[in-house]
Amino acid sequence: MDPTALLAVGQTALELGLICSLTVLALFLSYSMLNVCDLSTDGCFTLGAAVGAVVAAAGYPLLSIPAAMGAGVCSGFVTALLQTKLGIDSLLAGIIVNTGLYSVNIAVMSGSSLINLNKADTAFTMVRSLLRGTPLENQYKTIVAALAVILTVAFLTFFLNTRLGLAIRATGNNPDMVRSSSINPVFTTIVGLCTANAFTGLSGCLMAQSQKSAEINIGSGMVTIALASLLIGSTLLGRGSIFTRALGMVLGAFLFRLVYAIALRMNMPAFMLKLVSSVIVALAIALPYLKQQWPILSRRLSHGRAAKGGV
């Protein structure tokens, strides 16, 4: 691989990694902090993309971002309501919302499964025209994505250290304790999931606007990709302050995209992305378990050999 190609690979990984890291940060809040595996992430990502694209196509590129985040909040609210007030298991609640969102997303895109943003003004084109003539002009995508990530990390660092943030973390960390304390777990779960899904929506919105189109499958498999990034990130920077761990999430998202981009360069077909992410997630979760089981497993193996040898 020549240096320019390598640089291009790094550039793409950086852009995609930054945009996807917003979803990873959303899961950092819901999965790592609140201990809820939010399976509505795929649908919510697409919802953010659809809403962001529709609003931008209608000529309001600035409004598209809060609109997508607001849509994410609504989706998170429904998921949270299902699991806290209607007694539906949290995994199932996510799946139900995810399924329902498919119809909602097509409805948002007025019955079509694709919105083209080639001629529309987006957050990205706005920044590009702002930067016209400066040396940063070609970096506009990275700049927009980085800005969103910096703001999100700053917000999470602030938020998770407030009293509300502490209450949300305690809800995920020790539900027993929270149940017999003055924290209302229904409230913390709702706030946590709404906030997390706002970032998922933002992530989808930026993804659609950066690739100049939103289509119905833009978010499929996103939850696995984001979980893979999250697990990579927490392996690298899993301890320490919230800020450090949030940075780890961004780093994880970037590394995941980098490995993937390199694999693509080595002629791995693009459709392999999802298999790769599945394998990473499975391995990342299974390895600590296998490591723990290994002593007993190896003892059983050697025990079996010894028994056979004795005969």
Binding site: T162, R163, L166, A170, S181, S182, I183
Partner: peptide, 12 residues
């Protein structure tokens, strides 16, 4: 800090 519960939800 959680137990002390002083200040509003967004207090540090």
């Amino acid at each position: 800090a959680l137990a002390a519960g002083s200040g509003g939800w967004l207090s540090h």
